[in-house]
Design a binder for these strands. Structure first.
Ligand SMILES: NC(=O)c1ccc[n+]([C@@H]2O[C@H](COP(=O)([O-])OP(=O)(O)OC[C@H]3O[C@@H](n4cnc5c(N)ncnc54)[C@H](O)[C@@H]3O)[C@@H](O)[C@H]2O)c1
Ligand SMILES: NC(=O)c1ccc[n+]([C@@H]2O[C@H](COP(=O)([O-])OP(=O)(O)OC[C@H]3O[C@@H](n4cnc5c(N)ncnc54)[C@H](O)[C@@H]3O)[C@@H](O)[C@H]2O)c1
Lengths: 286, 286
DNA sequence: CTATCTTTGTGCACGCGTTCACAAAGACAT
DNA sequence: ATGTCTTTGTGAACGCGTGCACAAAGATAG
């Protein structure tokens, strides 16, 4: 999921390419680029789908939204398809990008080669720390936040990347938008509020890990139901596991007659067995 | 959101929580944690939904999968909900994690505080470069790849993070899986092939930017070649981004009578309008 | 030109996810 | 108790995305 979006007609897609398809185009493009470098002239939907890690029917349907670029009995012309997808994604033009917040992550992003190779050009690196100003990162001198608006306007930047601490993300986003940016890639763990017409996509490592943890818990616990899954991973016993600290207070009655509703909660759970309300020592958040 | 699903029969979710909901739980948890720190006792679905950037009806339905933890006429008990969601996500236990590939990105990840704050503990940092061995990154000494299997087994690691170059990703994934890892977060731009039962989530900056570029292109009104102009979105934008270079080579008839189909492609495109922002997952299962 | 084989393009059905809308639960006042 | 007001929990409708299955297009061989 991308962002904390709120605007969205929902029934607005009257002609465009489905969002799900757009999200896969870069995947196909990557696979096609690899084929192109090996001078492979054509590929079947089956081969390409396999390389991209998707279902071949899905791939064909995706391409059908772009038009009929394949040849029955043969497959797709690699070079031609690379061009068509690039064009559709808007990669046939140069996209200047600004990265705001040149800390650990921002610096890594600035050094990332995947930028330039796809038509994205780092127009500027911005940081609020005066001590950073002038320092070269990835061959580009970091500029102070004061330069933000000027840089955006002078370079016609429409895409901004936020890699500042969470607390600064919204203010930075506001400035980016005010200066003309209409697309933001946010790495800070916060929900950004932006005006209609501005796209925000977010990348949150913490969320990804939590999703993995959820599934991991099911695997080890083996109980699909309500979960008081128990540790003891399948693999070699976990020494490190176990209860460490106890940042979070156990359920317990914190307010009102919560105590009552804690047990009765079993009344609604679908197929699960009652009497659980499992209470394990809590370890976590902050 | 969570769209492309591959393994995980989808139907196997039996009485489980929908994937889309699982993906949002961390979002709710973050918002709730913030409220908790401000000692707010209860929240209504409306308030919390707003803080998490989602629709209130969706939030209520999401919570309904966990059970009936709200009180009509009042809302949800913050502390209680924090605990329930943490438990459901498996955050009440400690998850040791290994990061493989301590380069620009790997080092940034190692320094990321969002790890520990959610119950994830960096058990080890692994890199193939002998020169890196022993060097401390984020307070932890980097270990050579040879130690990979031992570290995983000794710590009962079940979650691995790959931050190596694309070419090394698959081999690293194979070793992780062979050693017992069953969940992988992949930052390398490659499709990983893993056995059934192993979850892989990927984060690809390049793909995110390309998706943004797609929408950005629509906003600026011109659909190169085949498509004609589209009504401007809203924000009086300045066609941001001056067209500079042309990263991608033009079509050119490379095979057969391709030249003909270039124009006729207009036959299928219907009319559409922009405005929609795909809320697809920034990260998809792979 | 006809037959056969390959692979695309897509109609169709199905299931997940989103959203609306409202009955009912409970808080609170009288 | 009874009534009013607030907010949850969820039934139901709907749209999107997925994947099957196959007719048709085109290549290729005879
Ligand atoms: N490091 C990671 O792997 C990682 C992973 C996921 C998310 N994040 C998130 O990314 C963000 C950055 O992480 P980091 O590890 O690089 O942090 P960091 O502290 O190393 O860097 C933050 C940088 O932002 C600058 N900054 C602060 N306020 C600013 C402002 N208003 N304008 C411009 N610059 C400003 C600071 O000077 C600093 O250089 C954080 O929100 C973090 O939660 C980081
Ligand atoms: N830097 C970014 O912002 C960014 C963004 C998106 C994706 N990525 C991807 O993340 C990966 C890492 O990027 P980076 O900028 O940190 O690269 P990098 O070259 O700085 O670091 C890669 C590290 O991996 C190590 N390595 C190589 N092969 C290995 C192996 N087989 N086992 C263990 N370690 C090995 C190298 O020694 C090096 O330290 C790349 O695949 C890149 O495409 C990076």
């Amino acid at each position: 999921m991308a962002t904390g979006r709120n605007h969205r007609p929902a029934t607005s897609r009257s002609r465009g390419i489905p969002d799900a398809t757009v999200a896969r185009l870069p995947l196909y493009l990557r696979a096609l680029t690899a084929l192109s470098e090996r001078s492979v002239p054509t590929v079947s939907s089956e081969e390409l789908a396999s390389a991209a890690g998707v279902n071949s029917a899905k791939l064909r349907k995706d391409f059908s939204y772009l038009g009929s670029y394949g040849t029955r009995g043969v497959g797709y012309d690699v070079e031609y398809l690379v061009y068509q997808i690039s064009r559709e994604l808007g990669l046939t033009q140069d996209w200047p990008v600004v990265i705001v917040g040149i800390g650990n992550l921002g610096a890594a992003l600035a050094n990332y080669g995947g930028f330039a190779s796809r038509g994205f050009r780092v127009a500027a690196l911005i940081d609020a720390d005066p001590a950073m100003a002038g320092k070269p990162v990835a061959g580009i001198a970091v500029q102070h936040s004061d330069e933000l608006e000027r840089v955006i306007e002078e370079n016609g930047v429409s895409i901004g990347v936020i890699a500042t601490p969470a607390a600064s993300a919204q203010p930075v986003a506001d400035r980016l938008v005010a200066a003309g940016v209409t697309s933001i890639l946010n790495f800070a763990p916060t929900v950004l509020s932006v005006p209609e017409g501005v796209d925000v996509r977010k990348v949150d490592l913490s969320i990804e890990l939590q999703i993995l943890a959820f599934h991991e818990q099911r695997k080890s616990g083996e109980l699909p139901d309500d979960g008081r899954a128990v540790p003891g991973t399948d693999i070699g016993e976990d020494a490190g596991g176990g209860v460490t600290g106890s940042p979070v207070a156990p359920p317990a009655a914190s307010v009102t007659k919560r105590t009552a509703s804690a047990a009765p909660a079993a009344t609604d759970r679908r197929g699960d067995e009652p009497g659980n309300d499992g209470d394990l020592p809590a370890v976590m958040p902050a």
